[in-house]
Design a protein around this nucleic acid. Structure first.
Lengths: 193, 193
DNA sequence: GTCTATAACGGGATAGAC
DNA sequence: GTCTATCCCGTTATAGAC
């Protein structure tokens, strides 16, 4: 892997583990096995590297999500596939965590990919749910946009609860809980199976 | 307000705004209008002050939540009162955000109040829901513990989405969404009112 | 109790040699 | 392209005077 590639990958890992404020150029260099001069040759500084790292992580997240939504099946099945997809629960969401980073939120350039990722995700899930409703799979009284926000929030909040507890359990429960609630709105579904 | 009090309050604010890693003793002192010597006279250092601040914030959160749960009404009404309570949505949850702070999570002493707060909250909401179920207000098929985790996750995730979007809208939608889902499980409720 | 000095260390970056 | 040297500043204290 080229030096710029290694620097970006190291930054991605550290951003995930320690956040932007908690990540120093020195730590990035050491993990990448690159010197100071090398890093500053390829990138203008910490914000530049972080931008490259965040963009790549956002793209990956989007691709991984789209993979589940594109699958054939009912709307609830597709959302379930997304929610139950394998995740590193205790590490949290690499994009969601940036939301708590004051320096990221203060910089419109760094913030944009975070904003766009969640906007896309909410809209995409709303589409899946609206499709399910139009097909008659889902209760017509269910608001696709609201419910999509709920689904994404359960995921992001599930990470928070898991990290607080030091266990994946609350994450699993939160996901099971929302799927249980959703099941009652599936017009072909059963309430207590 | 006494100097120790001002130091604790300043720390609470900064922890909320910038997190533990992003908060320096110097910033705390300046906001509190206290000198270095004064701070180190009353507290052994940054972790000690942070512990006092976190404990107080956790207590307040718990008291504010209990206030809503203790109100008379159906389980869904009490959970709704909690979810719709006035909040500084764009600032996020002062306890939940600590979950993303590597230095807080690495220190068992600082981490404990965070863990305990969410454990209490999930259990408390599960109790409210179980009570509603036993009273026949709620669908017997609904799992109180899972649903409680979902409710707390929606809140925590709602904060994340709101901060990402720079708007309270996704938070409101996520809350409306979960309440809409929950309504269908209220045995006396109506689906599409 | 509060103040000022001092210090060891790391963050974030620049300069110029190789 | 990569390396080492250097720099300035902020962090997180400690020491001792007042």
């Amino acid at each position: 892997m080229s030096t710029p590639e290694r620097l970006i990958e190291s930054t991605r890992e550290l951003l995930w583990e320690r956040g932007y404020v908690g990540t120093s150029p020195k730590a990035i260099q050491q993990r990448a096995g690159a010197g100071q001069g090398s890093m500053y040759h390829h990138f203008s500084g910490k914000p530049d590297l972080a931008l490259a790292a965040i963009r790549r992580t956002a793209e990956e997240l989007r691709a991984a999500a789209e993979e589940r939504f594109a699958v054939p099946g009912t709307a609830v099945e597709r959302v379930t596939a997304y929610l139950r997809r394998e995740r590193e629960v205790l590490k949290g969401c690499p994009i969601g965590r940036l939301t708590q980073d004051p320096d990221v939120m203060a910089d419109p350039v760094l913030r944009a990919p975070v904003d766009e990722t969640f906007a896309w995700l909410r809209a995409r899930i709303a589409d899946v749910l609206a499709e399910g409703r139009d097909r008659g799979e889902l209760d017509a009284g269910l608001d696709p946009a609201d419910t999509a926000s709920t689904v994404v929030a359960v995921l992001q909040g599930g990470y928070v609860l898991a990290r607080a507890a030091g266990s994946e359990e609350p994450f699993r429960r939160a996901v099971d809980g929302v799927l249980g609630l959703l099941a009652a709105h599936a017009t072909t579904g059963h309430r207590a199976d």
